[in-house]
Design a protein around this nucleic acid. Structure first.
Length: 490
RNA sequence: CGGGGCGUGGCGCAGUCCGGUUAGCGCACCUGCUUUGGGAGCAGGGGGUCGCCGGUUCAAAUCCGGCCGCCCCGACCA
């Protein structure tokens, strides 16, 4: 193959970049650390967005939109929040450009802003500033809102989709009258994320709680879903935060309860980003390129016509169009590639690189025998199958691919999840095998920091479903309430 | 922020060490014919201020000085 991607074994990092670029998901942009999301990549994001948006609406949320710019003083209001984000903010200081004596374009000193504006790294502050106006009474609660937006975090080190300076995401921001209700909301939305990851993206995830050091800046509690990539590194795929009354207090957001008493509002926020595309790639794709789960593929089936002369071309295309129509009628997303400029062989390779789950090849031979050639992207199996019953067969196969991808990822995760009881064993697994490691931890930040320092592994989460199994910290021997999940992470 | 790499038609590169015809190759692109079941063949054609600025020289992609940009790898982070 002329345009092969680097193999995962020889250079995982280069493989990832090759997949992104050769599947035409994204390009580098002229701006350092930012990317151009190409139509193939954006189509994926659109499908994710549509699906998630439906799940948000189904759980009672509405969309709104807040400004890209946040007044600098807002960010300063919540102490931990500033501390967490101050290091990575883009700051707008001027409102126009002008030419200097050397004819160079510079920010016009005359136009210096009275107050700097921050390009949002997240929107809690500006939203809670407004919630303070919207909320007076317990009757105004809850507020269940979400926004689809871009945010900017000035990163040192970037990687396509996984960490770029600007990225697309959704951020849900809810306000509640009680702590219980807010906690429940944070849990509900984590569940929505987990469902989405597993049922649509075919990515098995561990649901859990972050330790204090990994918590969102300004949150009381951060819940997360963690996924394991093919190279044995963990990736945080979504977070949901119980914010307590931190932002309500910072922005003086109170309501009057049933007893006419003033109370601070309880809050949550939750988000997933285009980073999920990175997770998708690193979960399912192979050395032939992208592999997409059928539920998220823009094109679930591509039809490649094969012919040797004009007469055959007419005949084959007619047949191909008929099949296309049948599939379309059955709500299968299908593309017929009748482009005359590329040969079938070229198309086969191209659609494999782009991860289209199923390919139908149809040529004179097939027409004669009422067959088509059906090729699966995930297993790379090819079969000659009868046209009779094709729609049902394709529906079944798509389901099979979707389930198979999840199953395969789940098995890989299980195979790369190790339970250890000694620090030596821990270091050995982290160093040589990677993956998730279940081990006892004494619950202190000091121990957590030392482990990270010495091994590079962090506590990904305290899993919700961990066994009730007290023990002793592998490092300090102190009491541990149960095992936590360690891994090296993206 | 440290370490490494790279900057030459749209893309990938060679040429740079050791200065010297008209800057070359593959892919892509355009035209034509033949082709089409796993990245087609032949013929013809178009496209470059060699990242930028300065210096040395009869002569600079090549040597010297400075600057800029991007990518990769590590520490911090969705």
């Amino acid at each position: 193959m002329a345009d092969a991607v680097t193999s995962r074994e020889s250079d995982y990092s280069q493989w990832y970049i090759d997949v992104v670029r050769k599947a035409k998901l994204a390009d580098y942009s002229p701006v350092r650390g930012c990317m151009v999301i190409r139509p193939n990549g954006y189509a994926l994001w659109e499908r994710m967005k549509e699906t998630l948006d439906g799940l948000f609406k189904a759980t009672g949320h509405e969309n709104f939109y807040f400004p890209l710019f946040i007044p600098e003083r807002f960010l300063a209001r919540e102490a931990e929040h500033v501390e967490g984000f101050a290091k990575e903010c883009a700051v707008v200081t001027h409102s126009r450009l002008t030419l200097n004596e050397e004819d160079e374009l510079i920010p016009d000193p005359e136009s210096k802003l009275e107050e700097n504006l921050i390009v949002r790294p997240t929107s809690e502050t500006i939203i809670w500033n407004t919630y303070a106006d919207w909320i007076q009474s317990y009757r105004d609660l809850p507020l269940l809102y979400n926004q689809w937006a871009n945010v900017v975090r000035w990163e040192m080190r970037t990687r396509l989709f996984l960490r770029t300076m600007e990225f697309l995401w959704q951020e849900g921001h809810t306000a509640h009258a009680s702590k219980e209700e807010a906690v429940e909301e944070a849990e509900r939305m984590l569940d929505v994320y987990a469902t989405f990851a597993e049922d649509y993206m075919a990515i098995p995830v561990v649901r859990g709680r972050k330790t204090a050091s990994e918590r969102f800046a300004g949150a009381v509690d951060t819940l997360c879903i963690e996924a394991l990539m093919q190279d044995g590194k963990a990736l945080q795929a979504g977070t949901s935060h119980f914010l307590g009354q931190n932002f309500a207090k910072a922005f003086d957001c109170t309501y009057t309860d049933e007893n006419n008493e003033e109370q601070y509002v309880w809050a949550t926020s939750w988000g997933v980003s285009t980073r999920l595309i990175g997770a998708l790639i690193m979960t399912h794709s192979d050395d032939q390129g992208l592999v997409l789960p059928p539920k998220l593929a823009r094109d679930q089936v591509v039809i490649v016509p094969i012919y040797f002369n004009d007469e055959q071309r007419t005949q084959v295309l007619e047949e191909a169009q008929r099949i296309q129509q049948e599939l379309d009628d059955a709500d299968i997303r299908v593309k017929l590639d009748a482009d005359d400029n590329q040969k079938p062989g070229w198309k086969f390779n191209e659609y494999e690189l782009q991860g289209v789950p199923l390919r139908i090849g149809i040529g004179p031979r097939d027409i004669e025998n009422d067959n088509v050639e059906l090729a699966r992207r995930d297993t790379r199996e090819k079969n000659i199958v009868p046209q009779d019953g094709l729609v049902a067969r394709i529906q079944d196969t798509l389901t099979d691919i979707q389930d198979g991808l999840f199953q395969q990822a789940l098995e890989r995760r299980e195979a790369h999840t190790t339970t250890v009881d000694s620090y030596d064993a821990f270091k050995d697994v982290i160093e040589n095998e990677g993956g998730f490691v279940k081990a006892h931890w004494d619950g202190t930040e000091a121990t957590e920091a030392r482990i990270q320092d010495e091994t590079g592994a962090t506590i990904r989460c305290i899993p919700f479903d961990r066994d009730d199994e007290p023990g002793e910290d592998m490092l300090t021997g102190e009491h541990s309430e149960g095992r936590v999940l360690f891994a090296k992470a993206y």
